[in-house]
Amino acid sequence: MTRALTGGELAVQINDNFPNTVDEYTDISCYIQSNDLPKVARFLKETPNLNFAFLRSVSAVDYIDHFEIIYHLLSMRLNLSAVVKTKCPGREDPCVPSVVDVWRGANLQEREIWDLMGIRFDGHPNMKRIMLWEGFQGHPLRKDFLR
């Protein structure tokens, strides 16, 4: 069985190396500051006892007062999984750093989030709409999208 790291276990590991990056944690996930995302992502991928080389999915959820980006991680070598989340406040031009440099698998998924949820990924090589056409007004998966 794949063992799921609890938010607490993950928070301890991250805090030991990067103090003050973990905002809070729950049983299944751990919230980190969006600015520290790339370096924490690289740490999670390259640390031998974590080895999260496989990015399962990147999801975004609109909680009205903030957006949440969720990274589901998997280590095939250790059969270990973890969930890392980050919060992104503001509705005008929300932006989080891209993790494409760390996991190439994020490429299309981040483009999809920009297209449908309207969150820009800073540092993404090709931040264009993917499902809808250029010139489409709004981002349909937002809760306030009406049409």
Binding site: A60, H72, G105, Q109
Partner: peptide, 16 residues
């Protein structure tokens, strides 16, 4: 559901 995100294998397999 408040949100139902689908991780579809075909979509991500086209990355490369």
């Amino acid at each position: 559901p408040y949100r139902c995100k689908i991780r579809s294998p075909s979509f991500i397999n086209t990355t490369m």
